[in-house]
């Protein structure tokens, strides 16, 4: 009384159940990411001219991450091919690289997130805007009435824009080159020590900072969840689930294939995410 076609393909469809299942799941994933891509397009097309930011992200790091993901994609298919050729030891070695690549991807992504969360835009009471990375906080931090007090000083390493640029509505445009081109002002990178009491607004580059960062964080976080989930499944099949290779090798190979299909999809999404978020 077993469910048929869990291992061998059904004759008229040529598919085993899990393969059809994963493709159906991927179809819904296409619609999920498709909706977010549509949102990206709509928000970008709908933004006021010149407001959509460019150049916030670190392209070399993003390129490195793309390479890492491409590597994992080829290893996952090579691992499956090794299993097909009955070479379990080779599969073990290659698939380990996949999992390590996934780990590396998540680490690099975390570094990028950290970089954004320590990147501040500070609006001073006199209208100047200081944009830079947090070096340290000084003072403050004690809890009063259940609320953590802000620091007395924050030290940033970055650039300063004069007040008149904010008045022209340009302080929200983080693309340094654009600002410099427009104003002829050449911003110099240096350290600023800012008293909290002199500021009107201190905000880091989280999803709340602008709509571009909002869609960046949403898309990449959702993608990263897929990476983590996919890697967890691949790792489980590689490690604890590997006993099945002894009892039911064909089904085991199918599992590797199906998890691999999911992994390729995750790679495929990133192939689009990288240019639209980092480069365009």
């Amino acid at each position: 009384m077993d469910i048929p076609y869990t291992v061998l393909p059904r004759r008229d469809t040529g598919l085993y159940n899990a393969k059809l299942g994963i493709w159906l799941f991927l179809a819904s994933e296409v619609m999920l990411f498709g909706a977010l891509f549509s949102a990206y397009i709509l928000l970008r097309v709908g933004s006021y001219p010149g407001v959509w930011p460019h150049g916030i992200l670190n392209v070399p790091v993003g390129t490195l991450n793309t390479m890492v993901l491409i590597c994992s994609s080829v290893t996952v298919v090579l691992a499956w091919a090794a299993l097909k050729a009955n070479d379990f030891a080779k599969y073990r070695k290659i698939q380990l690289v996949t999992v390590l690549c996934a780990l590396a991807f998540v680490c690099i992504k975390s570094y990028e997130y950290y970089d954004k969360f320590t990147h501040y835009e500070v609006v001073m009471k006199d209208g100047r805007v200081i944009d830079g990375h947090l070096v340290r906080k000084e003072g403050g931090g004690q809890v009063v009435n259940g609320r953590k007090q802000p620091p007395e000083f924050i030290v940033l390493h970055g650039v300063e824009f004069p007040a008149e640029m904010k008045a022209a509505g340009m302080a929200k445009i983080p693309l340094l080159e654009a600002i410099e081109k427009k104003s002829g002002h050449h911003a110099e990178h240096k350290e600023f020590r800012v008293a909290w009491s002199d500021t009107t607004r201190v905000q880091n580059y989280g999803p709340w900072h602008n709509t571009y960062l909002a869609i960046y964080f949403t898309l990449t976080a959702l993608h990263a969840l897929h990476v983590i989930g996919g890697a967890a499944v691949i790792f489980w099949i590689w490690g604890p689930g590997a006993a099945m290779w002894k009892t039911d090798p064909e089904r085991y190979t199918n599992r590797v294939e199906v998890s691999g299909l999911f992994w390729h999809f995750v790679d495929l999404v990133w192939i689009f995410l990288f240019p639209i978020l980092y480069l365009l």
Partner: peptide, 23 residues
């Protein structure tokens, strides 16, 4: 095929609600 876009929309509304994004 129709539910995932609502899931995406709900995630974005969650970002608006919890992380103060402006989708």
């Amino acid at each position: 095929l129709a539910f995932p876009p609502l899931e995406a929309a709900a995630v974005m509304q969650l970002m608006d609600k919890v992380f103060h994004a402006s989708f």
